[in-house]
C-alpha cells in the first residue's frame, strides 16, 4: 500500500492506528451513549411534568406525581455545607504540602491524605451511622443548639442523622480531591516567582500570598468545583447518614434527602413507568450538572497548568 507521496506504509502500522482509534471512539461513545440513555429513560417524565419537575416538592408514588425540589435542595445544601468545611482544610493541606512543610514530611502526609480517598464510600457510611451520627447527637448538636439556637440553622430535634452529618461526611470525602488538585496547581506556579519574593525579603507565607496565590487562583477555584462535582454525585455514605426524608428545612439538624440517595433507595423498588422515568430524570439532572461542572473545572485547572511554559523566565 502506498501513501499520497508514494511512500510504502506498513500494514501493521495502518491496522494498529485504526484499531486504537476505534477503541478510543468508545470512550466518546460511552459518554454519548450515557447521555442518550438517560434522556430516553427520563423522556416520559420530562414530557409529563416539564419544568414543574424542578420546582415542585411533591414526590408521591401513590398518586404518581413527581417533583424533585426537595432532593435538589438536599443535594445543594449538603454539598455547599461540605465545601464550607472542606475548602479551608484542603487549601491548608495543599499550601502546607507544596509550600511550607519540611521536605521529609511531604510524602508521608500526602500519602495519608490520599488514603482518605481510598476508603470506600460505603465504609464511610457505616462509620457515619455508628460513630459520627451518635457523636453529633450527643456532643455536637446539643452544644450548637444551646449556643447558636437563636439561628434557624440550629433549631429542632437533634437526631444526629441529617444535613449536618451529610455535610461532614461529604467534606471528608472531597478533601483529598480538592487538596491534591490544589497541590498540583500550586506546584505548577513557576518557582522563580517564589524565589523572587523570598529574595526580596518576604517571609514564606508572604511569598505564597503575593507570588503564588494570585497566579493559582483560577486553578484553586477549579479544584473546588471538582470537589463540588464529587460531592453532588456521592451516593452511599450520604444516603446512610442524611436521614432520607424529602423535606425542605433550614435547620442543619433536620433530615434531608439527596438526588443520588433517592435513586439508590427507590430505583429497584420503583413500580410503574412514570416512577422509574422520574427517577431517571433525577439521574439525568445529576449527570448534566456534574458534566458541566467538570468541564468548567478542567478549563480552569488547565489554564494554570499551562502557566509553567508561558511564565518561565
Amino acid at each position: 500500500m502506498l501513501t499520497r507521496f508514494g511512500r510504502e506504509v506498513n500494514w501493521g502500522d495502518f491496522v494498529f492506528r485504526r484499531a486504537t482509534a476505534l477503541v478510543a471512539t468508545f470512550v466518546i461513545g460511552a459518554l454519548g451513549a450515557m447521555a442518550v440513555a438517560m434522556v430516553m429513560g427520563s423522556w416520559e417524565s420530562i414530557a409529563k411534568f416539564g419544568c414543574s419537575f424542578l420546582i415542585s416538592s411533591v414526590w408521591d408514588p401513590v398518586r404518581d406525581i413527581y417533583g424533585a425540589l426537595p432532593f435538589i435542595y438536599g443535594t445543594l445544601a449538603s454539598s455547599l455545607l461540605a465545601l464550607a468545611f472542606a475548602v479551608p482544610v484542603s487549601l491548608g493541606v495543599a499550601i502546607f504540602l507544596s509550600e511550607l512543610a519540611p521536605a521529609w514530611l511531604r510524602a508521608p502526609v500526602g500519602f495519608l491524605v490520599e488514603l482518605l480517598a481510598a476508603v470506600p464510600s460505603v465504609v464511610y457510611g457505616l462509620w457515619g451511622i455508628f460513630v459520627l451520627a451518635p457523636w453529633l447527637r450527643e456532643s455536637v448538636e446539643p452544644r450548637l443548639g444551646r449556643w447558636l439556637g437563636f439561628l434557624p440553622f440550629f433549631q429542632g430535634p437533634q437526631h444526629g442523622f441529617g444535613l449536618l452529618a451529610g455535610g461532614i461526611i461529604l467534606a471528608i470525602m472531597i478533601t483529598p480531591t480538592i487538596s491534591s488538585v490544589s497541590r498540583e496547581v500550586l506546584r505548577a506556579v513557576p518557582s522563580a516567582l517564589r524565589e523572587g519574593a523570598l529574595g526580596l525579603g518576604a517571609t514564606p507565607w508572604e511569598a505564597v500570598r503575593v507570588a503564588v496565590l494570585p497566579l493559582a487562583r483560577s486553578g484553586l477555584v477549579g479544584a473546588t468545583i471538582l470537589g463540588l462535582g464529587r460531592a453532588l454525585g456521592e451516593t452511599m455514605a450520604i444516603t446512610m447518614v442524611i436521614g432520607n426524608r424529602a423535606e425542605i428545612s433550614a435547620s442543619l439538624f433536620a433530615p434531608s434527602y439527596t438526588m443520588a440517595s433517592v435513586i439508590a433507595n427507590e430505583f429497584t423498588e420503583a413500580t410503574g413507568r412514570l416512577y422509574l422515568s422520574s427517577l431517571a430524570e433525577v439521574g439525568l439532572l445529576l449527570f448534566v450538572v456534574t458534566v458541566l461542572l467538570n468541564i468548567v473545572a478542567r478549563l480552569l485547572v488547565w489554564r494554570v497548568g499551562r502557566l509553567p511554559l508561558e511564565g518561565r523566565l
Partner: peptide, 17 residues
C-alpha cells in the same frame, strides 16, 4: 476530554446507564 469528564460522572448514573 471525554475521558476526563467521564471520570467525574457520578457512579450512580453509571448504574442507571
Amino acid at each position: 476530554f471525554s475521558a476526563d469528564v467521564m471520570a467525574g460522572v457520578p457512579s450512580i448514573t453509571v448504574g442507571i446507564f
